[in-house]
Design a protein around this nucleic acid. Structure first.
Lengths: 217, 217
DNA sequence: TCAGTACCGTACCGTACGTTACGGCAATCT
DNA sequence: AGATTGCCGTAACGTACGGTACGGTACTGA
């Protein structure tokens, strides 16, 4: 019980972090079929320690997901000297970052286990991944969008609607295809190109210079 | 072995279809944790029959996914009397249909198991769902898009790019959020509104009357 | 030096579940 | 009628794996 608190407060021993990294590696290799024994063997630790530190298998998975989530904190943006150029590059950089994340092995593996456990879970891995995935993306992006609206560079009613449209333009069918096992190689060049395209499309829909689209209704 | 052939040729007994429907129901209720015993009990059949008909647990899951896929065949469109109105309504109807499908309990459950089994599978449920999900959507939509381009109502270079953009505008973050267990209630009214919005946005990007966006590059 | 702590390695236990085997019953065929 | 087939229901088997117990070792602190 108090162990869960420790995990939440990131009070993780170096040894424990190593164990979670081992669990991550196994999750990438074997998916949800990883066993407590395999984690113990890979991390060269005893099963007793696993249960002592993380409670049970579910606790280990939860700690692993949270451990990975703690690694990918977002970079805050500076609101000084903000113009159409920084808005564009901000969106573009954002799209690129996100595509890199969701196409990574670890993200795919984690989303797979979270999807598999969604709903029927005490710790609810789905909620955790949701919180550190789409929701975190929204929290990071919305300030940028609203700053753009304040500067009269963007037009939209609901920030959430604008965000979700951008999400769609960026992610498209990439994530679901990767999760379903489609061999979809995203090179850096492809991601770069897609980020530019998505940003341009978003600006075409919500940019101030365009009256063509009324996105909201 | 010959049983797999039977399944592919849809040579399913009524009894077997009932069994697969029971399996579907259990899949919706319990996810991938459904057991052979539970299926047998729900369908009032013997386990011996399950193994005789479907080989093993994996075969049963595969047959279940294919059985559901066979139910949702797409409706072909008529290429006569085609104008901007029918293009718009076609896209809109398409978006609405797709949102209804992916937000349904069965679709969510099937995608969950497929994602969970993706890659490490002999029958590869991921590939099956992929084939009957995004790929089927693409196959159904592309003729409509290309017809629109032929009539000079749409401008795009790659049909696939145009399709994927439409996919993104329609699905956005809905599917991943549902798969991760987010309580996201899509009412008919919401779907209707989103379908219209997605269609309008797509036309703003690729419609002939708009020069604002060059989607391809 | 000796108790206490932390942890590794391994052996062990209980159970759930995939898979197989078998007895019985109803229908169909000869 | 007798044989064959198809299937239900249940019992039984084997195993993988989550979880626990325990002996052994290194370190720390008195």
């Amino acid at each position: 019980m108090q162990l869960a608190v420790e995990v939440n407060e990131s009070a993780l021993t170096e040894r424990q972090k190593d164990v979670l990294d081992a669990a991550l590696a196994l999750l990438v290799e074997a998916g949800d079929t990883l066993t407590m024994t395999s984690v113990a063997r890979r991390a060269s630790c005893s099963k007793e320690s696993l249960y002592k530190w993380f409670g049970d298998r579910d606790g280990l998975l939860t700690a692993t997901v949270q451990w990975q989530a703690s690694k990918v904190r977002g970079v805050p943006l500076d609101p000084e000297a903000f113009g159409v150029a920084s808005l564009t590059s901000g969106l573009q950089r954002f799209a690129s970052d996100w595509l890199h994340v969701i196409s990574g092995n670890i993200s795919v593996a984690l989303n797979r286990v979270a999807v598999g456990h969604a709903g029927s879970d005490k710790h609810d891995l789905g909620a955790i991944v949701l919180e550190n995935g789409p929701f975190a993306m929204a929290r990071r992006l919305k300030p940028l969008l609203e700053l753009g609206r304040d500067r009269d560079l963007l037009h939209f009613e609901e920030t959430d609607e604008a965000f979700r449209t951008f999400f769609g333009l960026v992610v498209r069918d990439v994530q679901i295809r990767l999760l379903l096992g489609d061999r979809l190689e995203l090179t850096d060049a492809t991601i770069e190109r897609d980020s530019i395209r998505a940003t341009q499309q978003f600006l075409a829909l919500y940019g101030a210079q365009t009256k063509a689209a009324e996105g909201g209704h």
